[in-house]
């Protein structure tokens, strides 16, 4: 873009300025404010916010609940990522393959709708599915001779339940993005390859996948970040609203909200956010590296 570099520069800055202004006001400022609070002790109501240095972080390192939340969240996020991306890629490829068929719309809608349904009633339906005594899942397992499992009560199984619920919601989003990505690949690429005698698998492997790389990067970053931010899913599955409480899978956001609004320790919750930010930044950076390296190799 040599010839247009001059006008391009002006355009880029003018176009970006309003967006960045909004960004600075509604995202950067409140986030910076939050990060600043991580070095302070604040209970929301007090006008005093004494500076306490890294004391919040020191305390976090020995906080059993925080460490448990960190462990659970990491496990859940990676599991959701590991399930969602391959499943979504396969589903998107299959649906894309059947795009001419009338059923494609149904498939796409059926898979996407879990992403938008109100979480609480949906999670209550899932509580039934997982119910230890007579839930359909245990009934199904019983037919294969597997003993009934206390899904929502066992510390390990409860984490699996949260993973399943999150993956159920995440996969529709990923499928939608991937299908749009596949539809946006120029048909000419396929035609040329087909003339060279490539079969469907080869088309998928050597054209679809590399062309999708930026979109795949997007989907995996978003899935990982969103999974690190889950909270309501874990809460609803364990909630005692029906008098049938499950094992509470403590996740980071839940712990932060409790610290902010129940324990009134905003600075402490902000310190948790800083740690979350650091972890996810590193992971996101790694994903960018991974995708860039591969494209360089291919």
């Amino acid at each position: 873009m040599r010839s247009g570099a001059r006008s391009g520069l002006g355009f880029a800055l003018v176009a970006l300025a309003p967006v960045l202004t909004i960004y600075a006001t509604v995202r950067i400022y409140p986030i910076a404010e939050t990060l600043r609070l991580s070095l302070h002790n604040w209970n929301i109501i007090s006008p005093r916010k004494p500076f306490i240095g890294l004391a919040n972080f020191e305390e976090l390192m020995g906080d059993a609940l925080f460490l448990e939340a960190l462990r659970n969240t990491t496990i859940i996020a990676f599991a959701v990522l590991a399930i969602t991306i391959p499943a979504a890629l396969a589903l998107a490829a299959l649906i894309n393959h059947r795009y001419g068929s009338r059923l494609a719309g149904f498939y796409e809608t059926a898979i996407f709708i879990p992403h938008v349904v109100s979480l609480v009633p949906a999670a209550l339906a899932w509580k039934w599915v997982f119910d230890a005594k007579l839930g359909p899942l245990n009934w199904l397992l019983g037919r294969f001779g597997v003993a009934a499992q206390p899904w929502l009560y066992d510390p390990v199984l409860a984490v699996i339940c949260v993973i399943v619920l999150c993956a159920w919601q995440a996969v529709g989003y990923a499928v939608l993005i991937l299908i749009v990505g596949m539809r946006n690949i120029s048909p000419s690429l396929y035609e040329a390859a087909r003339l060279d005698g490539a079969n469907s698998w080869q088309l998928f492997r050597f054209i679809t996948t590399p062309q999708l790389k930026p979109v795949l990067l997007y989907v995996s970053v978003v899935t990982l970040i969103s999974s690190f931010n889950i909270y309501a899913q874990a809460f609803v599955l364990a909630s005692d609203s029906q008098g049938a409480p499950g094992k509470l899978v403590r996740v980071l956001v839940l712990d932060m909200l409790e610290n902010s609004f129940r324990n009134y320790r905003v600075g402490y919750a902000a310190a948790e956010a800083v740690i979350l930010l650091a972890i996810v930044l590193v992971l996101t950076g790694a994903q960018f590296r991974l995708f860039r390296d591969r494209s360089a190799a291919s």
Binding site: M1, G8, L9, F11, A12, L16, L20, Y23, V26, R27, I28, Y29, P30, I31, E33, T34, I44, V221, I225, F228, N229, Y231, L252, V253, M256, L257, S260, V266, A269, A270, A273, L276, L277, V280, L281, T284
Partner: peptide, 29 residues
Amino acid sequence: KFRLPGFGLIFGTILATAIIPFEVYMIPL
């Protein structure tokens, strides 16, 4: 489509803001 110095940083910052759960910076906002 435009590669200007600082754009990488801008993009990185924008992406980083998505990492912090909304509930956490809701109070200042």
